[in-house]
């Protein structure tokens, strides 16, 4: 079996999943909202990119910037109009989750309505994907050359933001303990806005890239949501690097994983979503803290102690 193509595809998809999931993780870390409307931030990004490229005729990079901005504004609007008022009233987290479902319905079907009325129920950004150089039996394409480094760049920039700037550190502080952040003089509502813009922006960017890769429809954000959640949850739901790893694992599982199951066990590739679902259930039931909860040093110590005798479990 030629492995280059599936591996390359897995990395490409993994990059897209990572880019989509980072925002979901950031949302949950900072605001404790399980945001099902995250799907629509992706979808709007996809549509904005396609429309700006196809109809307005701007370059793909300008279109992606437009998608970033549009989804960032949408994310901000979601919070200001619904989440923040509910949060300030002290609503339980489940209320916020239900509200996110309401927001999802409003945005998704408004998009459906508009897309249908203008004859764009399916759309693809008209940017030719060209082969760059041969790679085994296949080719490295312009799309892969953009998507993979772009994702890594976003990851590096966000990491730098969270660890080397005052505002980024404050965001982490806020995720740790909001009340303590407030008494330390951190303006939590200003930071919350920043967080939502980052969430929307990265999701919009991911959606824009999808719209180059595949034909999209207004449901495509919702249809990707299972993978997005799986990537984020696998990483522990609040861990930045966990999400990056999670995204690539889901990329491989949905690509190489299902292909392997297909050739060896005859499992239909249509069952690919089951892998993501199984991952979510397994993580929730076995280790809700995901990768982030695995303490490497204690794990090694445990392995070393394994043949000696059973030790009381050390939780990370």
């Amino acid at each position: 079996m030629d492995l280059i193509l599936p591996v390359l595809n897995s990395i490409t998809l993994g990059s897209l999943f990572t880019l989509m999931a980072l925002g979901l993780t950031l949302t949950f870390s900072v605001t404790r909202i399980v945001n099902f409307a995250h799907a629509e931030l992706v979808a709007i990004g996809g549509y904005v990119t396609a429309v700006v490229t196809n109809y307005i005729g701007l370059s793909i990079y300008e279109s992606l910037v437009a998608a970033f901005v549009a989804s960032a504004i949408l994310a901000l609007a979601m919070d200001e109009l619904a989440f923040k008022p509910l949060y300030k009233r002290g609503s339980p987290t489940l209320f916020l989750l239900v509200a996110s479902i309401g927001i999802d319905l409003v945005v998704r079907f408004s998009l459906f309505l508009t897309a249908d009325a203008t004859g764009n129920i399916i759309i693809q950004t008209k940017v030719p994907i060209q082969p760059l150089m041969p790679l085994g039996k296949t080719y490295l394409t312009t799309f892969q050359v953009v998507v993979i480094p772009l994702t890594l760049a976003v990851v590096v920039v966000l990491h730098a933001l969270f660890h080397y700037t005052k505002v980024g550190k404050a965001l982490r502080a806020m995720a740790d303990n909001e009340d303590l952040a407030r008494v330390s003089g951190i303006k939590i509502y200003t930071l919350r806005r920043l967080a939502w813009m980052l969430v929307g922006g990265t999701a919009g960017l991911a959606g824009g890239l999808w719209s180059i890769y595949l034909v999209i429809d207004p449901d495509f954000g919702w249809n990707s949501l299972l993978r997005i959640f799986a990537a984020s949850i696998l990483g522990g739901f609040t861990s930045f690097w966990g999400t990056v790893i999670g995204g690539y694992i889901i990329g491989f599982a949905e690509n190489l994983g299902i292909a392997t199951l297909n050739t060896w066990f005859g499992v239909s590739t249509a069952y690919a979503p089951l892998i993501s679902f199984a991952i979510i259930v397994a993580v929730f039931l076995i280790k809700p803290s995901g990768f982030a909860g695995i303490d490497l040093s204690s794990l090694l110590a445990k392995l070393r102690g394994l043949h000696k005798n059973l030790e009381p479990e050390a939780e990370g």
Partner: peptide
């Protein structure tokens, strides 16, 4: 589509 938009609005507005 309008039906589902209203469903969403109802959920948010009631909450």
């Amino acid at each position: 589509y309008i039906k589902y938009i209203i469903t969403g609005v109802v959920i948010i507005a009631i909450l």
